[in-house]
């Protein structure tokens, strides 16, 4: 066992964990952050486990819990502000980009990361940014539309 220090969605924590566990297991099993999903058996193929690690997009199944020591993690649960959905979350709901929802948290975090770096992305940039997040329901079209919706919302807000 080792103790790691980690800030998750703004809260500093010390956690005891076995060294060989994935960050995904730590977030889900120890911290109850079940918005982080596993859809491929932790093989780095589905993107359902996407989180931000020090502001960088990662597949949390491919990160060891130990590697997150001293770092900051944002999950889908950290995106919304209190009772209000983040504009990107809102846009996904309104555009019909959410069906079964299993891919949704990961896809929203990818969209968030994109819009932080590229406030006015092209369709192609959006598709590229979402290409690591498998979705079997939507055909992605409404997700691309949702990112454009969110783009407008966010540029009005700023």
């Amino acid at each position: 066992m080792l103790t790691i220090e980690i800030t998750v969605n703004g809260t500093y924590q010390q956690i005891q964990t076995a060294p060989n566990r994935s960050l995904l297991d730590l977030l889900r099993d120890d911290l109850g952050l079940t918005g982080v999903k596993d859809a491929c058996g932790q093989e780095g193929e589905c993107g359902a486990c996407t989180v931000l690690l020090d502001g960088k997009l990662v597949n949390s199944c491919l990160v060891l819990a130990a590697q997150a020591d001293g770092r900051e993690v944002t999950t889908i649960e950290g995106l919304q502000q209190l009772e209000r959905l983040h504009p990107i979350q809102q846009a996904f709901v309104e555009a019909g980009a959410v069906q079964c929802g299993y891919c949704t948290p990961g896809a929203i975090l990818s969209a968030y990361d994109l819009l932080m770096h590229t406030p006015h992305p092209s369709d192609e940039q959006i598709r590229e940014a979402l290409s690591g997040n498998l979705c079997r329901c939507t055909g992605y079209t409404k997700m691309v539309a949702a990112v454009h919706h969110a783009e407008k919302e966010l540029s009005h807000a700023s």
């Binding site: 079940t34 959905l85 996904f92 079964c100 929802g101 948290p105």
Partner: peptide, 17 residues
């Protein structure tokens, strides 16, 4: 807008796991 959209987009929706 579907009513379960909020819980799904916020990561609150409870699947079996």
């Amino acid at each position: 807008a579907r009513k379960d959209g909020w819980t799904k987009a916020s990561g609150q929706a409870l699947y079996v796991g």
